[in-house]
């Protein structure tokens, strides 16, 4: 049994497939994310694969401060990704709402909507930092790193906050 388990963990570490969701980002982060796939950074060396369908993904990368219109779509996409899955917050926007903080059209930060496992700070973050964040997400998938604790109460209260906003 343990052989299968360790094979599965290795496979999860080596093959993180990414779905990228834009939750109202300024596009800065999205451009930096695509840079990871270019020859200079070549994330495919780590097995990172950019998928068009959330059904195929292991990691959901969210950029942007989570606007009202994208909030529901994010929850749908999160439900479409099969377990085990990890959420990566790309840039300062999903972490803190950044320059958009206080806007009436913003529901974020992201942890009010989805359980965020990895934060990649920066506005926008460098591709190296993004790849490091994805590698960390893969380590969480493989069980090398503990998953951060997301309190249920925390999420419930934040969901109501989200409706008020």
């Amino acid at each position: 049994m343990s052989i299968f388990k360790s094979l599965m963990n290795t496979a999860r570490r080596k093959s993180p497939w990414v779905f990228h969701a834009n939750a109202g980002s300024c596009n800065g982060c999205d451009i930096e994310f695509l840079t990871c796939l270019t020859p200079r950074y070549d994330a495919e060396q780590l097995g990172i694969h950019h998928e068009g369908s959330p059904r195929h993904a292991d990691i959901i990368v969210v950029s942007g401060p989570v606007t009202r219109t994208t909030c529901e779509a994010l929850e749908t996409v999160y439900g479409q990704v099969p377990d085990p899955k990890v959420v990566v917050a790309l840039g300062s926007c999903p972490a803190t709402c950044n320059v958009f903080a206080g806007s009436p059209t913003i529901v974020g930060p992201l942890d009010r909507v989805l359980p965020v496992d990895v934060y990649v700070p920066g506005c926008p973050p460098r591709p190296d930092a993004i790849i490091a964040g994805l590698a960390e997400a893969a380590a969480i998938l493989a069980g090398d790193k503990p998953r951060p604790i997301h309190g249920a109460a925390d999420r419930a209260s934040s969901a109501s906050d989200g409706q008020e906003a």
Partner: peptide
Amino acid sequence: FDFVKLLGK
């Protein structure tokens, strides 16, 4: 590894 990982989802 892609194949094994997909099997384990």
